[in-house]
Write a protein that binds this DNA or RNA. Structure first.
Lengths: 283, 283
DNA sequence: GTTCCGCATGAATCGATAG
DNA sequence: ACTATCGATTCATGCGGAA
């Protein structure tokens, strides 16, 4: 298991990665015109033009069974939502990407504020792209407890019913009970309810660890490889390493690389087995 | 206060409506390839072409201060999400519409099912378009109790709840009440949590009454005019009438017009004042 | 009168089968 | 091959009848 941190521009560094090498790409690129002081601020007009060569590289290095999750939200420009996200999706489809799904990240504690013609923005897009129609998805890994329905009805089952003699399994009644119990968990939907992280860690767009964790559970297994080409403070890489996935993080800001490295080291020391490695590149 | 029901094609009937006559358009047009038996089913390829002339008419009849809420969701075609909604937004902007905002309707009880590469779809788009950057928005009318927005049932917000006693305005006591209200209530976000109506309530409606009610509260006042060019069973028109707004409903299916008419009549008889009118056109 | 349980019902999606 | 139709899958909700 290897964790690699690259310092540099994604458009450049991605070329050093081999074809079909990555199982999951999950990233939150700098939004248009945001975070000017760190990333230089890409204007909405130029956003697609800026991102296209990168998405082309990502298409090359992703395994045919892999998935790309893009966390993005269009900003308001002159009273209107910008259309660069839509244009980006259309452009990426022309590159060969399949637009499989769009998850919604509902931010329970969204940014406060009040405007005369607008409410607070409490959601972001998590756009799923794939290279082919057959991709790896481990749905059982992210099942959630059912709603009140099951709880309300299961509570009536007596303890003896639940611990019924296994020999009874196969009889009508025993079978039925087993079916009930299996229904305690349900598959989730394409709407994620997560709070944004409060402790900001110095990075301006840190998302909560639960977000990469959920997608890493869903789309990878142990020893698979996860990439974040806009690593920031390194949340995705950190979570991937903790979950025993190979991880690659890239960021153009050296301070972020340093921060990610400092968050990774202790974990590495305590958990890595001898064959595991840790590589720092281009510092 | 007048409620009008038109039977016919929206592309045709909208021409009979004057310029700048409507304060709020809220509708849920037939989704591509959906509702084939009733609406004929527009293919995803032809969707923009089909809707463009209608949105052009809507632009003409909307007041400059008015708002257009479009409820829509792209379906999956051959494993991919269709792009016709994105293309529609881009096309409508070229027509002169402003894409002001996109609300998310989180459907708590979405359609069930299980597939190897996809979770259940639990959200729909509520895309807000405007004719100009200055539009009417009455944010106080939809404030919700502090705490979980999902628990605040919108149906509890009756019209009388929002009309403050005029005698209290200006007095110290009234001011204090206002302060209390400000403390107890918060502005909502752009994510709405509503369950769809199941068919057990006698009629099956595309969306729950709370949905048009919320937007009617937010974007109109009494005696304003609300339009639904794809009326269906008439939920929007019914709610608008109950909230003492003028309402116009159009549908190409005569059975739906009949259903809407039957839902409207009893309300009209019990609530209308003498100067109110009810008009049935083109049955 | 409560509470509880059975049941029908969705603006869904995939894969297999049929023309 | 390419489209049209069908069955299977699945879960929150509210109504009606039962305990």
């Amino acid at each position: 298991m290897i964790t690699r941190i690259y310092h540099g521009d994604s458009g450049e560094k991605l070329r050093e990665i081999a074809d079909d090498a990555v199982d999951l790409i999950i990233t939150s690129p700098p939004y248009a015109d945001q975070r000017k002081n760190t990333y230089g601020g890409i204007s909405p007009d130029q956003y697609v033009e800026w991102f296209s060569p990168i998405s082309l590289q990502l298409l090359r290095i992703l395994k045919p069974t892999g998935t790309f999750i893009l966390n993005i939200k269009e900003k308001v420009v002159n009273g209107e939502r910008s259309t660069y996200v839509m244009e980006l999706v259309l452009t990426m489809r022309k590159q060969g990407w399949l637009w499989t799904e769009e998850f919604i990240w509902h931010k329970k504690n969204c940014y406060p504020g009040k405007w005369p013609n607008r409410f607070r923005d409490a959601w972001e897009r998590l756009i799923q792209f794939n290279k082919s129609r057959k991709f790896n998805m481990y749905q059982e890994a992210v099942m959630v407890p059912m709603g009140d329905w099951a709880n309300a009805r299961l509570k009536n089952l007596s303890a003896t019913d639940k611990t019924r003699d296994p020999s009874k399994v196969g009889s009508g009644f025993g079978k039925k009970i087993a079916n009930w119990l299996e229904r305690e968990k349900a598959y989730p939907t394409n709407v994620l309810h997560l709070a944004t992280e409060c402790g900001n860690r110095g990075h301006s767009a840190a998302f909560p660890e639960e977000l990469p964790e959920w997608f890493i559970q869903l789309f990878t297994r142990e020893d698979d490889t996860v990439l974040d080409p806009f690593m920031g403070s390194g949340t995705t890489v950190l979570v991937a390493q903790r979950m025993r996935r190979n991880a690659i993080g890239i960021d153009i800001v050296s301070d972020y690389c340093e921060m990610a490295r400092s968050r990774l080291r202790p974990v590495q020391l305590s958990l890595f087995t001898p064959e595991d490695g840790y590589e720092e590149a281009q510092f």
